[in-house]
Design a protein around this nucleic acid. Structure first.
Lengths: 339, 339
DNA sequence: TATTAACACGAAACCGTTTTCGTTATATTT
DNA sequence: AAATATAACGAAAACGGTTTCGTGTTAATA
């Protein structure tokens, strides 16, 4: 086992000072060609690599970014991470992932852990519990310490920081209009409680489209689930009672499960009943029939978030200006609607 | 913006030395009750938290573990990460995730970046390119430096380190036997090239079951895809030509896609043709019909890997003994086979 | 020849902790 | 009263780098 070599080791071996070694390795003008050659050759031979921790301590920059998300076993978040990771890596940053598991306490603990020097900034999406409680003190504390934060997807207006979202309202609006254009009359919405910022926006878009049409809104055609968890019975009862001819779902699981239910009843998709979901994951692509979805472009979102964060981290200026980037959703047409 | 407070700040304010502050905060016996109270109160008031980086430098322990995996937009890896994250977090560790994207070079670069002090150990699953090249020098270098490594799922025997796998051979063997017991005669296998350790093991289990039966092996019933990527045409041609009455697939996407193909041809699942896949993801659960799979227990795998790694990191002893944990797969019975 | 500039390098501070090893009072023992 | 023990604290080294500011030597200039 050969341990890592340090500047001190090189200095001792070559009988020069540590500062000389450091400068020589940085090709400083101060050091003679001879000495530089000697030091660099030695360093290469013994595969010297500076210790990241020591550099972090000195520079007060870790080149790490903290990502705090509710869940990782979820296609959307997973694509966002990929986007963050790719972009961050290209700029020399590493990504520390922490899961809040939809818990407020875990979110707080994770942030506190990372905020003590481990990272240069946060990229996060709020846990449902946090959105439910509307308690954002942990975020405020962090920003007050001067640590940049970028919020994505599940955001709040109560914290001053950069934000990245997709236009969920527009996505739902377009999807609903698609149904209307295709002559659907009984358009249902399966969503979750409004405290989730995304569900709220999507419901708004759905309402807007219906209001603008001559159909109007039938409140009973909206099923609000208490959480993101599947409640199979609730969906079954709802579909049986309401008999919609089109269903917009705020995620793909609700949609795919619903599709199976109506197929078992002998209904034809999309003739008798059409479906559109949110999140363009594997499920939508390989469902039978394949599911039309409002794509959220998670990877793009991750990239944009990472860029915003790193730009802020590396900008010397202490601007107090924050921006909110709104990405356009796109409708990915598949076999669950007519086309 | 109130910046973080340091020991030095407290010392200056209270007119004591830094050492006294440090000891007081650790409730050292050396320090008088009075001083301790004063220091602790002050620290609490200003919300003092020690700087992780400084502690890491001092202790030569970062409390970070590096996870290097080929892909994150993949249900199995995602569950493994969750398992790692949960366990590691409970023991006070953070998880740095790096994606190799199946590329040898990225795997090497990521490891080198992290190996310079950023992490206490690695948990990783090899990229397909690495397994194809059989070049493990980057792993050997890291272990030689005394950094513990745990390999999971996609492993190699050429590196001395701890390993965690599921018994892929057994899983495939049991699945194939299930088909045989149910009277299936033309049992196909859709897999990938053998350089992927898992595919190799699964193929072995499939062969073993067939050899032990009176069916024997028909090499033409094995479709080897060059990579994990879907080749829709290859699968279509294969199924049309071979007309199997049972298909074992090394992942769920191959299986779900195949199911759709045969359904379009009017075949009944599972009566005419039955399917079993690997990886118990959302796709399997919500497919129509739902897919019977060999569950890989990714989360458990993550937990076990994290435990092995952290135990090694925290053990003072420099044992050179490595173990390989083999987890049992389980067959999750769903509607794609008779039951 | 005295002065100055350029060169090549080292000492030391610093980042924020921890920890060992003094050191100074005061209290206790003989 | 002298010796010793104890309590309470501080100085300084260490972790592994970077960087500022000397400093000594030689070469160029006046």
């Amino acid at each position: 086992m050969k341990a890592k070599i340090t500047l001190k080791d090189i200095a001792r071996e070559l009988e020069v000072s540590i500062s000389t070694v450091s400068k020589a390795l940085k090709n400083s003008e101060e050091i003679s060609r001879d000495t530089k050659d000697k030091v660099q050759a030695f360093a290469k031979l013994y595969n010297y690599k500076p210790n990241n921790i020591a550099i972090s301590l000195k520079n007060k920059r870790t080149k790490n970014i903290g990502v705090v998300i509710p869940d990782i076993v979820h296609h959307f978040f997973t694509t966002v991470i990929r986007g963050i990771e790719k972009y961050a890596n290209a700029r020399g940053y590493n990504v520390i992932v922490c899961l809040s598991e939809e818990s407020f306490d875990k979110e707080v603990i994770n942030m506190e852990m990372l905020a003590n020097g481990s990272i240069d900034g946060f990229i996060m999406s709020l846990s449902s519990e946090t959105q439910e409680k509307s308690d954002y003190n942990h975020l405020k504390e962090v920003t007050e310490q001067g640590i940049p934060v970028v919020l994505f997807d599940r955001i709040t207006n109560e914290v001053d920081c950069d934000k990245v979202i997709i236009d969920d309202e527009l996505g739902a609006y377009q999807a609903t209009n698609k149904f209307i254009d295709q002559g659907k009359r009984k358009i249902a919405l399966i969503t979750t409680d409004d405290y989730l910022s995304v569900s709220k926006a999507r419901t708004k878009g759905y309402r807007k489209a219906l209001e603008e049409s001559n159909l109007g809104i039938d409140e009973s055609m909206i099923l609000k689930m208490p959480s993101m968890e599947m409640d199979e019975l609730a969906i079954k009862t709802f579909l049986n009672e309401k008999e919609p001819d089109a269903v917009l779902c705020v995620n793909e699981i609700f949609a795919v499960y619903s599709m199976r239910l109506v197929q078992e009843k002998g209904l034809k998709i999309p003739e008798d009943i059409a479906f559109i979901g949110f999140t363009d994951g594997v499920l939508s692509k390989y469902a039978n029939p394949s599911l039309t979805v409002v794509a959220q472009h998670g990877e793009k979102m991750g990239e944009v978030s990472a860029k915003m964060l790193i730009d802020k981290v590396e900008s010397e200026a202490e601007e107090e200006t924050y921006q909110t980037k709104i990405l356009e959703p796109t409708l990915v047409i598949r076999d669950s609607i007519a086309h």
